[in-house]
Simulated assay, not measured.
Amino acid sequence: MDGTHTRAIINELIAASGNGPVTKVDITKTALSITVQIGGSPSLWTWQNGKIDSSATQSTQTASRPFDPDDFAVEKVPQILRKAADMSGSHMNQNLQIVEYNQGTVLMTVSTKPESRTVFFRPDGSVINHIDFASYPGMAEALDDATADATRIAQVSYQPDKAVMVDTPTQTPGIIVRRTRSADMPAWAVQRKGDASTTFSPALLKPRVIVSIMQLTAAKANRKPSEMGWTISQDSTLDQPILRIDINGVTRAFDANGTDVTDEVK
């Protein structure tokens, strides 16, 4: 399936289905199908060898949020499949899907048969990388994915070698949304109990400064930078977000510019 005709085929399938809400797109080397919600039930429409057919049986797909296929860079299918093969180590029977991943977040995924590592892509066709949290590009991607479109955040925390987590307020007091970006999976979100009474702008997060602090403190602790866990939250004394990190049992505090402000927040 080449990128030139992919969008046109999707549009043909949508029209054939009666313009039903699309909840899934499947693309293989020889076929393209969409799942649409018709009358509250999902149905499958498939293009193969120039012909369009609807499935005799309903799709077994569970309930999923509809999306607009026009929001996804399907014209980049060949490049996406090549990138997925490079990252997974396999190009056998590749299947590209567009489907809801978590709480309304719709992504593109590429899997293979026999199964190899599933590779995830954003709507614009950019790959969701494995994260090296001790590198500037890795931390920048992790923070960008974890903050998403949040305008205010209550806390950011880093679990060494595992994930960056961002807590954001909700309309319900005492309930937050925690969005987690792990090293090898796209960000996902869950609601949980938590305090979001004080918040700050995610624009104040500086990944290069954060990585520098991890490197500096790791040298003092005789550890790897990736092993240095930390949290960032708004400090009432300095009225700004402060990063707190443990160095051999002693907590040090740094402002957004990387200045040690431990003595000022005690």
Rank of each mutant, 00 (worst) to 15 (best):
D2V: 00
T6M: 04
A8L: 09
I9F: 01
I10Y: 12
N11I: 03
L13V: 08
L13Q: 03
I14N: 06
S17I: 08
G20A: 04
V25W: 06
D26S: 10
D26L: 09
I27T: 06
T28L: 07
T30S: 12
L32E: 04
S33V: 11
I34T: 02
I34A: 09
V36A: 01
V36M: 03
G40C: 13
P42R: 05
S54P: 05
T57M: 00
S59R: 00
T60C: 08
P66C: 00
D68F: 14
D68A: 12
D70N: 14
A73S: 13
V74W: 15
V74N: 08
V74G: 05
P78Y: 06
Q79R: 13
I80D: 03
K83A: 14
D86M: 13
S88C: 03
S90E: 02
I98Q: 00
V99E: 02
E100M: 04
Y101Q: 01
Q103A: 03
V106E: 03
R122L: 11
P123A: 02
D124M: 10
D124L: 07
V127G: 03
V127M: 12
N129W: 15
N129I: 07
N129E: 07
D132P: 03
A134R: 15
P137T: 07
G138F: 06
M139C: 11
D149R: 06
A150Y: 03
V156H: 02
Y158Q: 03
D161G: 03
A163Y: 00
V164M: 08
M165K: 11
D167T: 03
P169S: 05
T172N: 10
P173R: 06
I175G: 02
V177S: 14
D184E: 15
A189L: 11
V190N: 14
R192T: 15
G194R: 07
A196D: 13
S197Q: 10
T199K: 07
T199G: 06
P202V: 04
I210D: 10
I210Y: 14
I210P: 11
V211R: 06
Q215W: 02
L216T: 13
K220N: 02
K220C: 02
N222M: 14
S226Q: 14
E227L: 05
S236M: 11
L238G: 12
I245V: 15
D246R: 15
N248K: 14
G249E: 14
G249D: 15
T251I: 15
N257K: 15
